[in-house]
């Protein structure tokens, strides 16, 4: 195991008026580690994701990615990170896809953004990724607006992973999907993450999804991390009253 965390956050604080969205949050993610942030709506999960990925500035605190200060870096550097070493999977695929661009173009965009200039290779890569996310390569020229919700989400994942990022942020990736579709998507994410050795920070309120995917869990409430640790330790032996409530509320996680 490498000796440095990939992403490291210290003492993050953010207030919306009098409400603490982030209350002295610390977090480390190591290469290849999948970390789930769980908690109910409004607990600060998504805010934390946005702050860690540099999309939102905290009132105080530090975020360091691979030795670089994320909050101090310019937009050019941050965007460069976003299209090379990072990926972001949005809850709503419409926020992560270009709905008016074909499936192949959606996957190819990140490749072209980092300088790929061979159409045949880009198309080959897009075809391979469609297969990986279990979309028929015949649909490569179809617009994602004609895809089902589950397919759109799988396409978004392909589009995000095509440049082999080291760290992927996922915001409720199974959020708006049917239960049966969720299971398939989760399994696909699990497989890809293991295969590519990705570090993933996944925000979810789905305890079962966290159990399936994550090595480690952070439980957030009112902007604070109230409990964290190995996934099975937190879910099987929850210490904090809120975690116990969360786990007890789930049917057979």
């Amino acid at each position: 195991m490498s000796e440095m965390p990939l992403l490291s956050a210290r003492d993050l604080q953010l207030h919306f008026g009098r409400i603490a969205a982030l209350d002295h949050v610390d977090l480390d993610i190591w290469p290849g580690e999948v970390v789930a942030i769980v908690g109910e709506s409004g607990s600060g999960k998504t805010t934390l994701l946005r702050v860690l990925s540099g999309m939102m500035a905290p009132d105080a605190g530090r975020v360091v990615f691979d030795g670089q200060d994320v909050l101090a870096m310019g937009e050019a550097a941050r965007r460069n990170l976003m299209r090379t070493q990072w990926g972001f999977v949005h809850q709503n695929p419409r926020d992560g896809l270009r709905m008016g661009v074909s499936a192949g173009g959606n996957i190819g965009e990140r490749l072209m953004a980092v300088g790929a200039r061979h159409y045949g290779n880009i198309r080959g890569e897009a075809t391979a990724w469609l297969k990986r996310v279990e979309i028929s390569p015949e649909r490569i020229d179809d617009l994602p607006r004609n895809f089902s919700g589950g397919m759109q989400q799988r396409l978004q994942i392909a589009r995000t992973l095509v440049t082999r990022p080291r760290l992927v942020f996922m915001d409720e990736p199974t959020g708006g999907l049917d239960v049966s579709v969720q299971a398939r998507l989760l399994d696909m994410i699990r497989g890809l993450v293991a295969e590519l050795g990705l570090a993933v920070l996944i925000v979810t309120h789905d305890i079962a999804a966290a159990r399936l995917l994550a090595h480690r869990i952070l439980v957030m409430r009112h902007g604070q991390v109230v409990e964290q640790g190995l996934t099975d330790r937190v879910l099987d032996d929850p210490q904090h009253p809120y975690t116990q409530l969360l786990v007890a509320s789930v049917l057979a996680a």
Partner: peptide, 19 residues
């Protein structure tokens, strides 16, 4: 433009060839 972030323009050409 400020960041010379022009991958999207190639997407348009890609779409042209695909179609």
């Amino acid at each position: 433009h400020a960041l010379a972030d022009y991958g999207l323009m190639h997407v348009r050409l890609y779409e042209d060839i695909a179609r």
